[in-house]
Computed example of a mutant assay.
Amino acid sequence: MICCTNTNNALFFTSVDEISEEIWQSLNCESNIYFQRDFLKSIEKNHPKITFSYIVLVNDKNEPTALASIQIIDFLIDGIRNDLELLIRKLKNIARKLHIFPNKKPLKLLIAGNTFVSGEHGVFINQNQDKKTIIKELAKAILHFVKSDKKLKIDAFLLKDFINESLFITDELKDFNYHPFSVEPNMMLKIDENWRNFDDYLAAMKTKFRVKARKAFKQSIEIRIEEVTAENIVNQLPEMTNLYKKVASNADFNLGDFNLETYKDLKEKLDENYVLKTYWLDDKIVGFISGVINNKSLDAHFVGIDYQLNREYAIYQRMLYDYIEIAINKKLNILNFGRTASEIKSSVGAIPQDLTMYLRHKKSIKNRILKLFLQRIQPTPFQQKFPFKK
């Protein structure tokens, strides 16, 4: 265990289990599922290739003020894909020639955030704290953490994902030579308080989009949807994993592969707060959805799709409507669809929420070049749809 207080007023831990009950109680962060021990432990337990660490910031009285979830991964620059494939390929080549990224070995990347979830789920700040000060202390603590363990050999640091309203705080990272950039936005749907059921949602739509929804339900009428439980998940996981990999391989930006074995723990620990459903055609799984219910939000997690059958049976379109129906039935306020497939998500009512990341290279000269590289990475453009009546 690495656990020490230093001049940056920080404690370092290498596992959730090492953080004391006293610290958890002082932070009072577990009303947010993403900072619950069960959730963090489930991710940690099922991803042995990732190095997990946790930073707890403390004040002068040794009282915890913030918690940051740290993951260290091997990131391949080829993990960045975009519709502008030719441009990205050129940028990759330039980055390699300038030795920003290694030629053959992956980049050793330290991430403060959640590798497998979009949104501000990596840094928890206790109430009544100066958030700008906390961000500065976190940046110092990360540097101290890396310098104190020579075995880490970190190439770069990434802090993710911050909404626009937080940028006046997180822009303090620029003073520590971090460079902001954006990839795909989170597509977010606000659930209207007047939608008591899915029919109310359909009634709020323009005719064109309502017809499209009814067509998707007609196409998918043969599909059977089943709840995945802690008891029946084992037999379904192999096929779910195959379907997930097909979707992940199409993503424009992917920091790492999610191990679906994690679903066993999440379903067991979070129960009804973790949504998991499989889509069947006869005796074959052709898709699945997963999601986290966190306070008054439903956050779509990963999905799997049989692309060969998707067009004929409108599998993905049906999944989007099912997410919406779940959110309405559970009387939630927000549905976060996450990144990817922005246009089709906008056709069901979602709007883009920009998410900013901050990246810095460990070496100063490469970091200055990195800034130019990041300025070229832009979210994939898409045509925003407006399906609701005014």
Rank of each mutant, 00 (worst) to 15 (best):
A341H: 05
A139R: 06
M1P: 13
F198R: 00
I142A: 08
K206I: 02
G291T: 02
D149G: 06
P102T: 09
K330G: 03
T133N: 11
E165I: 01
K245L: 15
M240C: 10
L86Q: 13
L374G: 07
Q317F: 02
M188E: 14
K41T: 13
R224G: 00
L374E: 09
P185G: 09
Y321R: 01
A327W: 02
I94C: 08
N186R: 01
A139P: 00
L309E: 13
N310Y: 09
K105G: 12
R224Q: 12
T356P: 10
K269S: 15
K267D: 12
K371F: 10
S148I: 03
N336T: 04
K190L: 11
K97D: 13
A248Q: 10
N329V: 01
E231L: 09
F101V: 11
A112N: 11
T7N: 14
K366D: 15
T51Q: 12
K264W: 09
A300E: 04
D252L: 03
N46V: 03
F124T: 05
Q219V: 02
T241F: 10
K41G: 08
K131D: 12
N8S: 12
L298T: 00
A141M: 04
A341M: 07
E272Q: 10
N242S: 15
Q127G: 08
N6W: 07
D271L: 06
F302Y: 08
K264I: 14
K245H: 15
N235Y: 06
L374D: 08
K246R: 14
M357W: 07
